[in-house]
Design a protein around this nucleic acid. Structure first.
Lengths: 244, 244
DNA sequence: CGCAGCTTTGAGAATCCTCAACTATTGTGG
DNA sequence: CCACAATAGTTGAGGATTCTCAAAGCTGCG
């Protein structure tokens, strides 16, 4: 599937889009890039003129502290547009980094802005997806602000399951999960050592198992209870599992 | 000053807006509400048909955990629109709570959506402010995810100073700060006891003092160094102190 | 003055971190 | 297919940060 089609599907999970607008979006000219894991797709301070649409793989938006450590503020799966921010401010304040090997589809800002002028429904759809992105960040603010590591990890796995399912990969009970424990740690605000211990505990509790780059959830209800997970904040209009 | 004027000024800190659009925005019909501190302006699960523009006072967007504790995901000062989210999804997933006594200006969604259809520049301006809101949340994700309490508190004070100055109240070195330490704790992800200790240490270090609901910064450079503060993420086009 | 809410201080405990060593897995070239 | 290197994950011990509980001071207001 073309990345723009996948992106359009993602938008349509949250917004109604007219067929004229759909056609206009799909006819945008884009360019492709292939990046190995750990590659910095965009570096802080860099001037940016295209938004990055994730075609395959996993991408993170990270900040680097004075001591050199990085913290991942958000992650993006296939079909997500990962730096809409850049349309508003052309100098990046963030690193956009490949968390795994991935293919990126670059969408020039000028085309996006033209679309917004001509198709109000697209404009609102993009805005709504930006709100969803903000909603996810806000959810993580509350999680990182108060919840213990066990809940944060459980929540990451619940959220990731839903998002990956919406991207058409896997189910809530079994999905690919290529992140290393160090990368998980950068997302949920702890260390790889602690991720290891917490993951083991979830495993001992019979809630899930991690095998060869995949997660097998054995007790989804318990996982969601531990996480206090409620998918509403993802702002999907309907259950992504209803799609195919 | 009318709250809509203040809001327009806030938008213009980030976007260019035509005079036609300005007039259209200022002529929106709004209603007012006065709320005492701790009042829930919007409750989770409630159906919302207006966005809340903060006229005076301080407002927080909070989430409530299963054990009843609340965490504040974002705070809003005079001139901020505090639940643009609600335009995208009409059932609130959050509490919007008055952190101090405040006046709220309610702007019906239907008017906003009409504006977006007719004035693309307003649409982009709103979108850009949503991105700024997301950018602040993302900043707090990284802070809460890794930084120690001292840095988080310092960062809150730096950020609050800039935002309050942009709202026309005080300077970076001296501004009103009516939050209790328990409320600060809910924002920076710690406890009121710990806020007290960290605040005292900042005071002993000669960096700032807290007096009768106001902050006096004595050593702004040190405060910003402790916070690793860089205002770029607020996405103001220019220094708010340049305004009058 | 007295009450209520806020702040401060102390002491002990929980969570999580750091450092370090060890094991397991994955990938590569021969 | 094996040997080796590189990366990832696990485990232990000690320590730093922060939390919880509790009590005492402070401040503002009726």
């Amino acid at each position: 599937m073309h990345p723009l089609e996948r992106f359009l599907e993602r938008l349509q999970l949250r917004s109604e889009i007219s067929s004229r607008s759909r056609k206009a979006l799909l006819s945008v000219e884009v360019s492709f890039e292939t990046c190995p894991a750990r590659w910095d797709i965009v570096r802080a301070g860099q001037k940016v003129e295209s938004a990055c649409l994730v075609a395959t793989g996993l991408v993170g938006r990270a900040e680097q502290f004075a001591d050199g450590t990085r913290r991942t503020a958000a992650y993006y799966v296939a079909g997500d547009m990962c730096d809409l921010h850049s349309v508003a401010i052309s100098v990046a304040g963030w690193y956009i980094a490949a968390l795994t090997d991935c293919e990126i589809c670059k969408v020039p800002h000028k085309y996006l802005l033209t679309l917004f002028e001509r198709f109000p429904d697209l404009s609102i759809a993009f805005w709504r997806d930006t709100i969803a992105d903000a909603s996810v960040s806000a959810k993580w603010v509350t999680l990182l602000s108060g919840a213990p590591a066990r809940q944060r990890l459980a929540h990451l796995l619940c959220e990731y399951g839903v998002r990956v399912q919406a991207a058409g990969m896997g189910t809530l009970n079994s999905f690919p999960f290529p992140l290393t424990q160090a990368q998980i740690a950068e997302i949920i605000g702890t260390t790889s050592v602690h991720v290891s211990r917490v993951m083991k505990q979830l495993s001992l509790d019979g809630i899930l198992h991690q095998r060869r780059g995949a997660i097998e959830v054995e007790d989804l209800a318990s996982l969601e209870r531990v996480a206090e997970f409620d998918r509403q904040y993802l702002l999907f209009r309907r259950d992504p599992s209803q799609l195919e």
